[in-house]
Design a protein around this nucleic acid. Structure first.
Length: 274
DNA sequence: CGCGCTCCCTGGCCGC
DNA sequence: TGCGGCCAGGGAGCGC
């Protein structure tokens, strides 16, 4: 499901829905997703109040009144759902169920189980193994032309793979990598070190443009992705290349190509992207 | 050490 | 309709 805009959308929805509520009970319906749930998860958060819901990269951070932070990642298919009332019949993939005050129920559902739910102390959060080596936030001022030029220097890997590397910049996944390279007129196969300053400048700008536009649309809804409210996102209607193989480029009418890079599908226009 | 490949897992869709 | 194959928004780990 999620790249940065989808995670940001989930975080905003969750923040509104559950901030200030108290955890009345936790049910784990299996012992792990991608990694085991902490053994003392229920004990650590039961009775605590949810202080905030924030984001770092594609990780959702739920901070409790005892300074425990739940670090959650949605992987490919993870969802947080907030329901009014207590849930009786669970979906097969409802792995974590949190009963909250106000009669609300928070569900973590993840069919493919590539997601993560774990805990850390607030004070040790930034040095936690999952968060310690992440690159800058793409929408922050730290992500600029000077930075990207520097980290792409001497990188021979294709530019698309480079911008999807979370150590280099976070939040850019398969969709938004393709879309930002299209807007920048850069061939996704171009070795990163071959980008000239103007390419890098455009790429930085367009990564920000595309992510911000997607957040405004509530993210992209593909397949069954829904926000915790059950609403869907709309940004998929703005794709220029993603999923448009063989269809005419909106700019030049030549067919969009689909190739495979590092095991992932890449979509681009060979005429517009050099 | 930098990079690509494989794998984790389930489900939906397509073609036969 | 049933079934096999292929694909999927992520990322860790391994081997070259």
């Amino acid at each position: 499901m999620p790249e940065l805009p989808e995670v940001e959308t989930v975080v905003r929805g969750l923040s509104t829905a559950i901030t200030g509520l108290r955890v009345e009970g936790v049910l784990l319906r299996r012992k792990d997703v991608r990694i085991p749930f902490p053994k003392d998860l229920a004990k650590q958060i039961t009775g605590q109040t949810i202080r905030s819901v924030t984001r770092r990269a594609k990780y959702i951070l739920i901070t409790f009144s005892n300074d425990q932070v739940m670090i959650a990642h949605l992987g490919m298919s993870g969802k947080f759902l907030v329901k009014q009332g207590r849930v009786k019949d669970y979906d097969t993939h409802d792995h974590m169920v949190c009963a909250l005050s106000g009669g609300k129920t928070l569900l973590f559902n993840d069919p493919r189980r590539f997601g993560v739910v774990t805990l850390a102390n607030a004070a040790e959060l930034s040095s936690h193994a999952l968060l310690a080596n992440l690159g800058p936030e793409p929408l922050s001022r730290d992500f600029d032309e000077t930075y990207l030029l520097e980290v792409l220097k001497h990188k021979k890997q294709p530019i698309k793979n480079a911008i999807m590397d979370q150590h280099l910049v976070v939040g850019v996944g398969n969709i938004y990598a393709a879309e930002s390279l299209f807007l920048s007129g850069i061939n996704p196969q171009k070795p990163a070190e071959m980008l000239i300053k103007m390419d890098v400048s455009r790429l930085v700008k367009n990564i920000k443009v595309v992510l911000e536009a997607a957040i405004k649309s509530g993210g992209s809804t593909l397949r069954d992705y829904v926000r915790s409210s059950g609403d869907v996102g709309y940004f998929q209607h703005h794709f220029n290349v993603y999923g448009r193989q063989k269809l005419p480029c909106f700019t030049c009418k030549s067919p969009i190509l689909m190739i495979r890079q590092a095991g992932r599908s890449t979509f681009y226009c060979a005429r517009c992207q050099k």
